[in-house]
Design a protein around this nucleic acid. Structure first.
Lengths: 193, 193
DNA sequence: TCCTGTTGACTGACCAGTCAGTGAGTGGAA
DNA sequence: TTCCACTCACTGACTGGTCAGTCAACAGGA
């Protein structure tokens, strides 16, 4: 641990300010439409300073993604025992995923918008969706073996769960109790009797 | 109808070529990262010509959206009688929606990528998802009244159906029979017995 | 001859990234 | 504690390059 002085403290804070402002502006206007001058103005600094902290605009984007990565929180969320009942676990995962995404909807919007054209962002998004759906699929498979769930292709409800919740947070915030209703529909369907 | 001559025919075709090349490049590289010179090069013309057919780059984007609008096809797809059984209708809608989106995945990717930062695109996307989900929700409500479906919030399966299928076409093409499996899950759930 | 599709040089604005310079904070020497 | 050499966060003018949009001129069909 390097010794902290007033100067290093302020430097750390400045770095954070730049990352925060970048996330906000990138999500609002898009990566390419945001200029380094915009970011500097938003933090009340000269635009040359950005290059004191980051090598390039791309490097700044990478720092934003690293700082607010969804993946670690997603992993914690999905570390569930395959012995616990699906009714309980699916609700937990749906509500938890929704909370994680809801905390930083700007980041989700940025990632979805940039991923078709930016390989770095695309890989970050792919890691989240692929790992998330894979772990959830494995869990569902275990519950089929345990006899709680009928025999079916578990990738289907896994994809539906993930994307329905992602879609919820892409739009304007609304819809209460969506996650538990969604889990109920996936478990028991909508057909009468 | 204006009389067609060799010249007007060629002009119509040129306009189409420009729109097609724009869709491809916008989806590949993003709207802002695509230059008018790129589009001209892709059609083998001088970049000044683009401004003979379109007022601006934004106007060109609007023309792309108008040409390949999903909405009319979506409306045809959702014009179903509320008396027909859900098992049949949901499959039809799921498969049909997937076909419509699958015919032009570039457009879907373009629209999703640009909608957070471009109001014109955002409105186009919102019209599709909102109208689609609203009509589907209405239909499901009718089937609840008819006693085929149990009492539930029909916006939930409507959202899940729409976004699971949209998500399928955002990624690389794979997954067979996903639509019918998805409808089966939504109708009967995944719980055993 | 008129009209119109087409060309490509040109303009002005914008922008990522550079760099020489400034001044406040730091820490070691006396 | 005082002094001062040094570090480094910070500034803003500048550069090289890019790009949307303009326009005068051309060519060939109607």
């Amino acid at each position: 641990m390097v010794r902290q002085t007033a100067r290093t403290l302020q430097a750390d804070q400045r770095r954070s300010e730049l990352i925060d402002a970048s996330l906000r502006l990138f999500a609002e206007r898009g990566f390419r439409a945001t200029t380094i001058a915009d970011i500097a103005a938003a933090t009340g600094t000269a635009h040359g300073l950005v290059y004191h902290y980051f090598d390039s605009k791309d490097d700044l984007l990478a720092a934003v993604l690293e700082r607010y990565a969804f993946l670690p929180r997603l992993r914690a969320l999905l570390a569930v025992s395959p012995d616990r009942p699906a009714a309980e676990v699916l609700s937990e995962i749906a509500v938890g995923l929704s909370e994680v995404l809801g905390e930083r909807p700007e980041l989700l919007r940025l990632v979805v918008a940039e991923s078709p054209t930016n390989p770095i962002v695309a890989r970050a998004l792919a890691r989240v969706t692929e790992e998330g759906q894979a772990v959830l699929t494995e869990y569902l498979r275990a519950r089929i073996v345990a006899g709680e769930l009928r025999i079916h292709d578990p990738t289907v409800p896994a994809r539906a769960l993930f994307w329905a919740i992602i879609a919820k947070h892409l739009g304007p915030a609304d819809v209460d109790a969506f996650e538990t209703d969604l889990v109920a529909v996936l478990l028991d369907g909508i057909r009468a009797d």
